[in-house]
Design a protein around this nucleic acid. Structure first.
Lengths: 210, 210
DNA sequence: ACCTGAACACCGTTCAAGT
DNA sequence: ACCTGAACACCGTTCAAGT
């Protein structure tokens, strides 16, 4: 089968998802596609464009799948959760956002911002509100990406949280009282629920704003 | 002068700040310190530890400088602004957080969480609240890092925002109505104020929560 | 204990040469 | 127009050898 940008990007995503970011090189990618590494450059300008296309593909897919709900608030929760799940399944996308987000970032802004417009809030505040939601989502995504890198291949949620909590209690409790208190809750908290609690906090703030 | 981990980390920070992330290699760092690249490995395990120490140094410095204010809310704003300014001056730190945050992340959690404890909110919710604030801060930091990479060396704020706004309006307004509306505001908005508006939104949500 | 600097095993990217 | 694969200019990291 002939090479194409789409085929290359899809193969890259497979490698990134299965073996992690460090496994993606033009050599491994070319080998997987049964071609030479130079051939890829006919379809893709460079590695950054490859990652941008991969991230964009993932994000576009998620946002297309999210169904609009009864209220803007519910829709925002649905979009946020869809992104959370996708970025957890593809942690390299979360890390990518600190590099060169481009179109993927615009898609997220558009999706969230469109729902913010549906809330009855003044137009001049809509950008601030959407920005708060989007940056919060990306912050969580970045941390999930970091965690995925620190404990690669960790599947068992409980073991994973216990490992993170362990690193949080390795320091002196006198120096880090809050972190120690939080570590206890960390062990049996639900990432997804905590993420949603943050979204609700921002939505509550929006609802209350003058 | 003899080599030491501190001297190495400080020299690394200087290179990162002045010439960007791509300029930091063990060869350039060794040359700057007048030594061989292998010598650095006697003091630093690898590049990741070098970046971790650099990020930790920056974050610890900022948090130590932030004065506690009259109210926890004011203190949280001060910490957040301190981090915003520092991460804007050192964008590589913001990008680093999507990699292996370690102690720098704990410092931020402790600093923010300590103030959240001062708010009169139930203990079981404090972790969620601190998490929302920290992730929001890191999300903004990550985007600032990405922007710094996209428009390297850009000093003029107006030109910078105009450049970002241009990329936001390059797509069809029919496909991206919200992004187009936001681009107009983007041109003359204040990053720092918008960042603070997000913090206030979360604080308002916390104040309102049951 | 600490430093040197060459060597190793990689990268992303280019490019003459092929079809 | 598209692909090959060797070559180039780098990396991070290691390690025998020095002091």
């Amino acid at each position: 089968m002939a090479l194409s940008k789409d085929r290359i990007v899809e193969a890259a995503i497979e490698i990134l998802d299965r073996d992690g970011e460090s496994a993606l090189t033009f050599r491994t990618l070319a080998a997987r596609l049964g071609t030479g590494s130079g051939a890829l450059y006919w379809h893709v300008a460079n590695k950054n464009e490859l990652l941008a296309a991969g991230a964009d593909h993932v994000i576009a897919g998620v946002l297309a799948d999210v169904a609009t709900a009864a209220t803007p608030q519910e829709s925002i929760r649905a979009i946020a959760l869809g992104l959370f799940d996708a970025l957890e399944a593809h942690p390299w996308v979360g890390a990518y956002f600190a590099y060169a987000p481009w179109t993927a970032l615009m898609r997220i802004f558009e999706s969230i911002g469109g729902q913010v417009q549906e809330l009855s809030v003044p137009e001049r505040l809509q950008f601030d509100y959407a920005s708060a939601l989007v940056h919060y989502i990306l912050g969580v995504a970045g941390q999930n990406a970091a965690n995925a890198r620190l404990f690669p291949g960790e599947i068992d949620r409980t073991a994973f949280l216990a490992a993170v909590a362990d690193t949080w209690t390795r320091h002196d409790a006198a120096d880090y009282p809050f972190v120690h208190q939080a570590a206890a809750q960390l062990r049996d908290h639900d990432d997804r629920e905590q993420f949603l609690a943050g979204i609700d906090l921002i939505l509550a703030g929006i609802g209350r704003a003058p």
